[in-house]
Design a protein around this nucleic acid. Sequence first.
DNA 1: TAGATTGTTAATCGATTAACAATC
DNA 2: TAGATTGTTAATCGATTAACAATC
Lengths: 207, 207
Amino acid sequence: MKQKKISKLVLSRLPVYLNYLKSLPEECEHVSATSISRALGFGEVLVRKDLAQTSGEGKPKRGYPRKRLIADIEEFLNFSEPAKAIIIGAGKLGQALLDYSGFEEYGLSVVAAFDARCAFPQTESKKPIYPVEELKNFCKKHTDLIGIITVPADNAQTACDLLVSCGVRAIWNFAPVHLHAPSQIRIQNENLAISLAVLRLQPACDA
Amino acid sequence: MKQKKISKLVLSRLPVYLNYLKSLPEECEHVSATSISRALGFGEVLVRKDLAQTSGEGKPKRGYPRKRLIADIEEFLNFSEPAKAIIIGAGKLGQALLDYSGFEEYGLSVVAAFDARCAFPQTESKKPIYPVEELKNFCKKHTDLIGIITVPADNAQTACDLLVSCGVRAIWNFAPVHLHAPSQIRIQNENLAISLAVLRLQPACDA
DNA sequence: TAGATTGTTAATCGATTAACAATC
DNA sequence: TAGATTGTTAATCGATTAACAATC
């Protein structure tokens, strides 16, 4: 892993740059941080710092070569080899994430879901849902999987233990509980309620 | 609105305090920041600052009166009058949010969903799903609603316009598009892919 | 050379932590 | 009075912005 550590905030902007750069006409060879800044509403220096971190191919007077910049950001996000994630818990949320198309633009690919109430593989939609019993086997065939926990709170620790025993090294947890796992397992808790609560409690700007 | 502005980070900790305080035995009258800090793993001063912001009833030597602290945090989060939110788009994600039970502990209540493909009101589950045509009427009966957009990207702007025309003042947007709305409408974009991408790209701690 | 643009170094800002003064 | 604990003021840290030097 040559990757430097990247802040969440920088990371969140990369696909925004990417979309903008791709939206430009084919004949546009170079882009300046100034024009990107104006188009996207980010600070000018911020754009330069972000781009320096991911590419560093800017030339004074000309700006950044558009195609090269796109390639560099895509490489930074590992587009050539998207990270694979699996979902435990194919309820509404699990299925929503399984269907969600927004992961690709971050170099991510959700490949399958597993569920305890699923008796036999369901492959009618784009991505398969398997009985949870097949997880162990699946994990033997794929390496470096990210686990996504979308089971009810009561089952979350069990799901977590199962993922850990299958060799998963990073877990994205949607259940509102604190999970216990060996320290080398990276766990990130997602709490949707917080975002909504902030929206509610933040001072209205329409005074 | 007497409410001071509150940071997302402070806000995210309040329900954690609340859960801990409620989990303590009934006979426990006072809690110190030190003990909360140890139990939850937050810094000691951080706990004091958070509690000072929401309550400010601590007394040296004794600590904070537990029941009073619970009441103050709940009041801060407006438990007595939870904010009401409605969902536009009752697909998998919309239904998952409609069923999600984690909003209550932040003083929030998702009351209904609306969907264009819904021909007649569906009230079989706990919370109703209505045809989108009924939105206008519904909004006349309720004030200060928060809108949650979970429709496909293509329909998101239409949904947004509809919500604005119905008098909604804050919008939580799950569609991966930039929404245009009058400046007094607060819009918060949720991008689930970013969280997963961070989990993937952050340096593994198991080197 | 002159000017546009990059990249770097210093300043600002908000959140957290450390040190310490106030108080019951 | 002494000690535990709160609350405040200063230090640190990371992200962003401002000022400026480097370069094509």
